[in-house]
C-alpha cells in the first residue's frame, strides 16, 4: 500500500467533509429521502440499479454538475454554488474523483496524467516519488512513460484511480472502479479506500458488489433510481 506524505492543513478544517441532501434512497429513516453526510474518516458505498443516479450523485459532489432540483450539496462547510468558479476550482483541488468516463489527457504520459493534480496545485516536485509509488502499486510503472492514449481499458481505469488518490484529497469519489480493473488491482484499491476511509478522508464509492464493500467496512446505501 502506498505510503502517505505529509498532508497540508486544509484551508477550512471541518468535521463534515461533504453533505448531499435531497437524495432519494431505499431504507432511509425518513423513507425515500436521505441527507447524506460524509464526515472525515467515513467510507460510503452507493449501489443501486443502472440509472439510479449513482454517477450523478458523485459528479454533483465533485462539482462537475450542478445539483438537481431539490438536491443540495455542501463541501467543507461551504455552499460551492453560492460562490464563483475560482472558489469551486479551489474546492475541486481538495477532491479526488475517478468517474466512469475516464478524464485522461491522451497526449500526456501515464506519469504526467497521474501527477496532474499535484502539478496543477503547485505541489513541490518532491511529490513525484509519491506518484511513482502509486503507479507502481497499481501496476502502471512499466507504462509510466507511455502516452495515456495507448493504454488498454484496465490500465486507463487504474490510472484514473491513481490520479484521484495521488494528491491525498480530503474527499475521494470513485465511480464503479471494479468492473474494469483486474481482480488483483480491484482488491488493492478497495483495501486502500477502506484504509483512507478510516483516516482523515471521506470516501464515497459506487459499485454493484455491496457484500465486498461491507466486508471492507463501508456503509452501504442503495439508491432507488429516482436520485
Amino acid at each position: 500500500m502506498p505510503t502517505t506524505h505529509a498532508r497540508r492543513a486544509p484551508p477550512a478544517a471541518s468535521a463534515t467533509v461533504a453533505r448531499l441532501s435531497g437524495v432519494r434512497v431505499k431504507g432511509a429513516a425518513r423513507r425515500g429521502i436521505l441527507d447524506l453526510t460524509m464526515p472525515r474518516g467515513s467510507f460510503h458505498f452507493l449501489t443501486g440499479p443502472s440509472g439510479a443516479g449513482k454517477s450523478r450523485a458523485l459528479e454533483t459532489l465533485a462539482l462537475l454538475r450542478k445539483p438537481d432540483e431539490g438536491c443540495a450539496v455542501e463541501l467543507f462547510g461551504i455552499d460551492p454554488w453560492a460562490g464563483d468558479e475560482s472558489g469551486r476550482a479551489a474546492l475541486r483541488r481538495r477532491i479526488g474523483f475517478a468517474g466512469r468516463h475516464d478524464g485522461l489527457v491522451d497526449r500526456l504520459t501515464t506519469f504526467q496524467n497521474a501527477a496532474l493534480p499535484l502539478a496543477l496545485a503547485g505541489a513541490p516536485a518532491e511529490g513525484r516519488a509519491h506518484v511513482v509509488e502509486m503507479l507502481d502499486w497499481l501496476g502502471l510503472a512499466p507504462v509510466a512513460a507511455r502516452a495515456a492514449g495507448t493504454l488498454d481499458r484496465a490500465r486507463r481505469r487504474a490510472l484514473c484511480v491513481a490520479r484521484a488518490l495521488v494528491a491525498q484529497p480530503e474527499l475521494i469519489l470513485i465511480d464503479d472502479p471494479m468492473d474494469d480493473l483486474t481482480p488483483e488491482v480491484a482488491d488493492r484499491v478497495l483495501g486502500l479506500l477502506s484504509a483512507l476511509g478510516k483516516g482523515e478522508a471521506a470516501v464515497v464509492m459506487t459499485g454493484r458488489d455491496p457484500a465486498a464493500a461491507r466486508k471492507a467496512g463501508a456503509t452501504v446505501l442503495t439508491l432507488d433510481g429516482a436520485g
Binding site: S86, A89, A90, R92, R93, G103, V105, L116, P117, L120
Partner: peptide, 15 residues
C-alpha cells in the same frame, strides 16, 4: 475534452 479534465482537477478560470 482536455479543458474539462483540467477544470475537473481544479484548474481555475485564470489558469
Amino acid at each position: 475534452h482536455d479543458l474539462a479534465v483540467l477544470q475537473g482537477l481544479g484548474a481555475g478560470p485564470g489558469r
